[in-house]
Computed example of a mutant assay.
Amino acid sequence: MIYFDNSATTKPYKEVLDSFVKVSTDYFGNPSSLHNIGGQAEKLLSQARKQMAELLHVKQGEVFFTSGGTESNNLAIKGTALMYRNRGRHIITTSVEHPSVREAMEQLKDLGFRITYLPVNYEGRISVDDLEKAICHDTILVSMIHVNNEVGTIQPIEEVGSLLKTFPKILFHVDSVQAVGKIPLEIHKSYIDFCSMSGHKFHGLKGTGILYIRDGVMISPLFSGGNQEWKQRSGTENVAGMVAMAKALRLTLEEREDHLEEMLEMKSMIIDELKAMNDIYVHTPIEHSAPHIINFSIRGIKAEVFVHALEERNIYVSTTSACSSKKKDVSHTLLAMKVSEEIAQSSIRISLSYVNTLEEAKYVIKSIKEVVNYLRGVMK
């Protein structure tokens, strides 16, 4: 099997699974319990939080555990809106956000908030000048994806943070789910107030995530009923999942040190081979893009047909965001990049991890050529 759908989810490392089983078996107590078993669980949770903070270069008290990227995004956006609604009801985001951000914004619009969606250029990047022009007297939040989950475009996070530093009443949220472990991000130096991450995108387990909340920033919690996570996220903590996530991030950062160059070589080779083929359009930009995502379209071939044809060869890729792929919607991101609807409907996403190899990439390219020729022959 060749698995090239790592932006949807990654396969957990064996060491991660071993950690989860060990903690679930031997340290199964509730961290809020007063007895020793609960105390052991609480100690492990604190150690996981400390390790995550060290890996991310933030304070331990700025790491809040969640169930994943969707919850982290919703907590940051809605928590800010509810907390600061008397200060203002204007929020700025981009036209290429993940559904968990876009749909949260639409919910807030129904509650009386004004949402500005910044346009992007043909590479999928926003203009910092456009952002500055969009700021109003009652803007309370800017929310922006770091690495686009469909095409891999990197937004100018550092530049946006520097701009927003001059607007102290505006909070800055970054959806870094696709960036963690691939694109370095200095959270404090980028003046970020909230940063969302998801464990299963870097070989952790599903149902684990983080919301970084800058020290001193207050938000309104979405869950009520307990004092967990300093009252910001009630609910019994997933201790085993969080310990496993901390290990997954450490291992992923080590893998990045050892295998980033090979990943970049794979990406470059795949893009060059795709661009040499007739009626194939590569949407991932050469500059300002993450090392692991390649998005392209094949004119005249339905994306679902192509995905299943590769699956018959034991190769796994995807069409669009995993959160949207079964809806058969046209890519929101590609339309925002001014890609025609016809071309956008046939888009394919390849997404790599550090465990993939150049040999796998070469076999995938060979298979893509064969499948395209076969399908075009059938359609004649």
Score class of each variant (00 low, 15 high):
residue 1 M to W: 09
residue 8 A to Y: 02
residue 9 T to C: 13
residue 16 V to K: 03
residue 19 S to T: 12
residue 22 K to Y: 15
residue 23 V to W: 12
residue 23 V to A: 13
residue 24 S to C: 02
residue 26 D to Y: 15
residue 29 G to N: 14
residue 30 N to D: 15
residue 32 S to E: 15
residue 33 S to M: 14
residue 35 H to S: 14
residue 35 H to I: 10
residue 37 I to T: 12
residue 45 L to P: 09
residue 45 L to M: 04
residue 49 R to D: 09
residue 57 H to I: 00
residue 58 V to Q: 03
residue 60 Q to T: 13
residue 60 Q to K: 13
residue 62 E to G: 03
residue 63 V to H: 05
residue 64 F to D: 02
residue 67 S to Q: 10
residue 67 S to W: 14
residue 69 G to N: 13
residue 70 T to Y: 11
residue 72 S to R: 13
residue 76 A to K: 01
residue 76 A to E: 01
residue 81 A to I: 02
residue 85 R to L: 08
residue 91 I to F: 03
residue 92 I to E: 05
residue 92 I to T: 01
residue 102 R to A: 00
residue 104 A to C: 14
residue 104 A to K: 02
residue 105 M to L: 01
residue 106 E to G: 00
residue 111 L to P: 09
residue 112 G to Q: 01
residue 115 I to R: 01
residue 118 L to C: 07
residue 123 E to G: 08
residue 126 I to Q: 04
residue 135 I to S: 08
residue 136 C to W: 11
residue 138 D to V: 00
residue 141 L to G: 12
residue 141 L to F: 14
residue 142 V to A: 05
residue 144 M to A: 06
residue 144 M to Y: 00
residue 145 I to M: 12
residue 145 I to Y: 09
residue 148 N to C: 06
residue 151 V to P: 00
residue 151 V to Y: 05
residue 152 G to N: 00
residue 157 I to W: 07
residue 157 I to L: 05
residue 158 E to M: 06
residue 166 T to D: 10
residue 172 F to S: 03
residue 173 H to G: 03
residue 176 S to W: 06
residue 181 G to H: 01
residue 185 L to T: 04
residue 191 Y to L: 06
residue 196 S to T: 14
residue 197 M to S: 07
residue 203 H to C: 08
residue 204 G to N: 03
residue 210 I to M: 09
residue 210 I to E: 07
residue 211 L to K: 06
residue 213 I to A: 09
residue 213 I to G: 06
residue 214 R to C: 06
residue 215 D to F: 11
residue 216 G to E: 01
residue 218 M to I: 12
residue 223 F to E: 12
residue 225 G to C: 02
residue 228 Q to Y: 15
residue 231 K to C: 14
residue 231 K to I: 12
residue 232 Q to K: 15
residue 233 R to P: 11
residue 236 T to P: 04
residue 243 V to Q: 14
residue 243 V to M: 12
residue 244 A to W: 12
residue 249 L to D: 04
residue 250 R to C: 02
residue 254 E to H: 03
residue 255 E to H: 02
residue 255 E to S: 08
residue 256 R to V: 02
residue 256 R to Q: 05
residue 260 L to V: 00
residue 261 E to S: 11
residue 266 M to K: 08
residue 274 L to D: 04
residue 274 L to W: 05
residue 276 A to I: 07
residue 284 T to G: 03
residue 291 P to T: 03
residue 291 P to A: 06
residue 296 F to S: 12
residue 299 R to Y: 13
residue 301 I to K: 04
residue 311 E to D: 10
residue 312 E to P: 04
residue 319 T to R: 15
residue 327 K to S: 15
residue 332 H to N: 12
residue 335 L to R: 10
residue 335 L to G: 10
residue 339 V to E: 05
residue 341 E to A: 09
residue 343 I to L: 10
residue 344 A to H: 04
residue 348 I to E: 04
residue 353 S to C: 09
residue 355 V to H: 15
residue 359 E to M: 07
residue 365 I to F: 01
residue 367 S to E: 07
residue 368 I to V: 13
residue 369 K to P: 03
residue 375 L to T: 13
residue 376 R to F: 00
